[in-house]
Write a protein that binds this DNA or RNA. Structure first.
Lengths: 133, 133
DNA sequence: TTTATTTTTGCAACATTGTTGCATTTAATT
DNA sequence: AATTAAATGCAACAATGTTGCAAAAATAAA
């Protein structure tokens, strides 16, 4: 889905900043840091605008935040198909990238009595295909 | 295991700040924010000392950081028994707490060819026992 | 297309969060 | 108790994130 369509679907004004953020994350195929997004965008936006855009996209459940390696915060796209369902991320301990693994099946573990599950996010850590050679 | 023992095991000087942080997280039984830790500690430490303590504990794999609700960063204890193995967290959408669910069994999904798994962290989101009434 | 309305932008100023160097203090070692 | 090694607190700084408000841009209406 194109960035424009995603924004339209969530009743958001299609600004270039929001579109650039979405496109950058989508293009990379994995979770990206704030700096990676900024460097990938040709235009420069005011810090305020940039943060407000991220916040809006998060609030509308278009992207989400994760902490990688106990240090860096990265942003990943909530793929519409995956959103609100089971979700698998792979974090490579060597090259420090986070990828989505949509083809991987995830079984929800049996929860203790009284708990009700709505979403599941799994992070598997290890070595990615590139680094495991 | 007592805070002192944990520190000793990792060859860290047993300072009161480090012990207080570990004890606060351990006592709560779930992931806690920076503020929750500070409020729970009787003594007040300089911001520098506090951050340096957190950093040290993270570097030594005694605690780790997670992002909750796309906004708050919380710290959780790496229970020695669970460390480096499969790991389940439950995040309650209502009361916003994160609990460890050590009794829950987790099956690692089948990864695509080339990937090698070392650790797995699963976050299940939904309603906890208290809020699901 | 032009006008009116709503939302976003950029700036400035501020608040919060996190870091570094260095002298002093505390903990561990002998 | 004396020596050594590490942690503390302070000050100063750097990075990250927020708010109010006037100007600009995007959408809706005429």
């Amino acid at each position: 889905m194109k960035a424009e369509e995603i924004l339209q679907k969530h009743n958001l004004v299609r600004t270039s900043c929001r579109q650039s953020i979405i496109n950058t994350i989508a293009k990379s195929g994995h979770a990206v840091s704030e700096d990676e997004i900024k460097h990938n965008i040709e235009a420069t936006y005011d810090r305020t605008t940039f943060y407000r855009s991220l916040k809006t996209l998060i609030k509308k459940n278009i992207i989400h935040k994760i902490v990688v390696d106990n240090q860096v915060i990265k942003y990943a796209l909530n793929d519409a198909e995956v959103l609100n369902t089971k979700h698998v991320h792979f974090y490579c301990n060597q090259c420090k990238t986070v990828e989505c693994l949509p083809d991987v099946e995830l079984e929800t573990p049996l929860l203790p009595a009284g708990y009700k599950e709505t979403e599941t996010e799994l992070v598997v850590k290890g070595l990615c295909r590139k680094c495991n050679c």
